[in-house]
Design a protein around this nucleic acid. Structure first.
Lengths: 145, 145
DNA sequence: CTAATCTGGTTTCGTTACGCAACCTTATTC
DNA sequence: GAATAAGGTTGCGTAACGAAACCAGATTAG
């Protein structure tokens, strides 16, 4: 039977994964964050098959993570740009990047270090914080009933 | 041909997705964070086929996100527990949850609100911060050369 | 003006993975 | 000693993935 979908799950993580939880979608979003906008550029940068890319871009547009803009006046030239919803995946992507850097030894020792444009200093590791701003771990949280 | 893998990508996001970037793995990690440890419990909570669960647990153990503990003295009873690497996915899961809560309207209006055990107050949205602790967006960062 | 090229796809087709159900093996319980 | 439970494995049908071919409209080259 079909791959299981989670559109209607009451778990927001499942719903999120339903939209960006496959192998390619988050990578597309990542490259879009780095400035990629065009079909061919995604294709070359990611090394993805055209039909799959087409499908993924379509799904991301459908879910309003990207929107498709007709540039070039009369068709045949488009750009895929992040929506606010898409840009809002920034913490997810960064958290994932930091996790990968920390736990998966890089073949080339070049953990892409992102820096703040204003200060020029590296950004902080993404952390979950309580109301006072103190970092919390999984052991520190609970679900009230 | 086979699904593309990213084991040796020099992109840490791709490497991370290679380990936890499929439909089930992060959900398994999520449930593990909520205390699930046993095969049958994962199976029932997730509604996942046994062979797929078997495969995913195996991969997660292989990637050292979980470790398999033999409880019950002489086999036939195991627990899958998060390693430090696995627990370190906490910010990723939370960021994803918050994104899902914010952008994917829940069928049932019950966004699971996580609270800090000490203060009892809700946790903050996960944010990326610069060295001074100020929130930054995708537009505020760059990669030095 | 025509041919070549670029862009953004769709189609075809073989391979792989997913998902269900059935079966299996080793404890434990009755 | 039979029944049940835990943790898997196996088979099989279907859906998704991936490469390459094909296509159509717009642009550029000659």
């Amino acid at each position: 039977m079909a791959r299981k979908r989670f559109d209607d799950s009451n778990c927001s993580v499942a719903r999120a994964l339903n939209e960006v939880g496959d192998w390619w979608s988050l990578l597309i979003v990542l490259h879009a964050m780095h400035g990629t906008r065009r079909f061919v550029d995604f294709q070359h940068e990611l090394g993805i098959a055209k039909n799959i890319l087409c499908n993924r871009l379509g799904r991301l547009v459908e879910h309003q993570v990207l929107h498709k803009v007709d540039v070039g006046e009369h068709g045949s030239r488009f750009e895929y740009r992040l929506t606010e919803k898409g840009r809002d995946l920034f913490p997810v992507v960064i958290a994932l990047r930091q996790w990968g850097d920390k736990w998966s030894p890089a073949p080339e020792p070049s953990p892409l270090d992102l820096r703040d444009r204003a200060s020029g200093r590296p950004i902080q590791p993404v952390q979950v914080r309580d109301a006072e701003g103190n970092p919390v771990t999984i052991r520190d949280v609970f679900v009230p009933e």
